[in-house]
């Protein structure tokens, strides 16, 4: 089911781009024109890395490198122009954020509002470990090794260790 919504055919209805994508080749692919690529392989790699951080605005969670939408293609060109001028990756991303806001970043910046998002890995782990430790602490008795009865039960369950 997931795949139905995937990728290429998902554009915002509102924009009318839908019309284009239904009538034009829906299943074109990312960089569909070799002339788009930068001649310097190092710069092309930098451009691809930047592109992977930028969201195709009219698609579902795809980067502009992965999208066939017209706007994604335009943005890819812009990225490559900036890279060719020797700008740093951060400069190119800042240029994009200035125009489209943080929506264009596939990895949101750490701010107070995204603290919970970025803190979730640590928070979840802490909650898990702290509650496990608390439950262990509450049990005063140190468990004995397996008793013979328990051992027999486990053997019966097919796990005799």
């Amino acid at each position: 089911m997931k795949a139905l919504f995937h990728g290429k055919q998902m554009f915002r209805l509102k924009t009318g781009l839908l019309l284009v994508c239904l009538s034009a080749p829906v299943m074109a692919w990312a960089v569909d024109d070799p002339s788009e690529m930068l001649p310097d392989p190092k710069q092309e790699r930098q451009a691809e890395a930047i592109g992977a951080q930028l969201r195709c605005l009219v698609c579902q969670n795809e980067s502009i490198e992965d999208s066939s939408a017209g706007l994604a293609r335009d943005l890819r060109k812009v990225v490559r122009e900036h890279v060719a001028r020797g700008e740093s990756s951060q400069q190119v991303i800042d240029w994009m954020v200035a125009r489209y806001g943080n929506f264009i970043r596939l990895s949101p910046p750490v701010t107070i509002a995204t603290l919970l998002l970025w803190g979730m890995p640590v928070l979840a782990l802490l909650i898990g470990i702290v509650s496990a430790v608390m439950i262990f602490r509450r049990r005063t008795a140190t468990p004995e090794p397996l008793s013979e009865a328990e051992r027999a039960r486990l053997r019966e369950l097919g796990d005799g260790r």
């Binding site: 969670n61 943080n102 970043r105 596939l106 949101p108 509002a113 998002l117």
Partner: peptide, 15 residues
């Protein structure tokens, strides 16, 4: 907050 952000592959890979 009335702000839109995107959370994509770079975030999920890193987290």
């Amino acid at each position: 907050f009335g702000k839109t952000i995107s959370v994509g592959k770079p975030f999920f890979d890193a987290a």
